[in-house]
Amino acid sequence: MKAFVVFLSVAAVVRPSSFHGSGPDAVVEMVPGSDQVGGRLELFRNNAGVIIQGSVTGLTPGYHGFHVHAKGRLGDFCKDAGGHFNPFGKNHGAPEDVERHAGDLGNVEADSYGVAYINIADYHISLDPSSQTFIGGLAIVIHAGVDDLGRGGNPESLKTGNAGKRSGCGIIQVVGGSSSAYLPPQPIQRPFQPVHRPPQPVHRIPQPVHTPPQPAFHYQPHQPNYGRFELEFPPRFSPPRSFNPYYH
Rank of each mutant, 00 (worst) to 15 (best):
A3H: 05
F4Y: 10
V6A: 12
F7I: 09
F7K: 13
S9V: 05
R15S: 14
S17I: 10
S18F: 04
S18M: 08
F19E: 12
H20Q: 10
D25A: 13
G33H: 02
D35C: 10
D35L: 15
Q36H: 10
G38N: 08
G38P: 00
R40Q: 13
L41Q: 06
F44A: 13
F44N: 12
N46Q: 01
I51C: 05
T57K: 12
G58C: 09
F66S: 02
H67P: 01
V68F: 04
H69C: 05
H69L: 06
G75W: 05
K79F: 10
G83L: 05
H84R: 09
F85C: 03
F85T: 07
P87S: 09
F88H: 14
N91T: 14
G93V: 09
A94I: 08
E96L: 04
L105F: 08
L105A: 01
G106K: 03
A110F: 03
Y113G: 15
G114R: 09
G114S: 11
G114E: 10
I120G: 07
A121N: 11
D122G: 01
Y123R: 12
I125E: 04
L127T: 11
D128F: 11
S130H: 00
I135Q: 07
G137S: 05
G137D: 03
L138R: 15
V141M: 03
L149H: 11
E156N: 14
T160S: 15
T160Q: 01
N162G: 09
A163N: 08
K165E: 15
S167V: 01
S167K: 02
G168D: 04
C169R: 06
C169F: 05
G170D: 02
S178A: 15
S179K: 11
S179P: 02
Y182D: 08
Y182A: 13
L183I: 15
P184A: 13
P187A: 14
P194R: 09
H196I: 15
R197A: 09
P199H: 09
Q200E: 13
P201M: 02
V202R: 04
H203P: 00
Q207F: 01
P212Y: 00
P212D: 00
F217P: 09
F217E: 12
Y219A: 13
Q220I: 14
P221S: 06
Q223C: 09
Q223R: 15
G227Y: 00
G227K: 03
E230K: 15
E230D: 15
P234H: 06
R236F: 07
S238W: 00
P240Y: 08
R241H: 12
R241E: 14
Y246N: 13
Y246E: 08
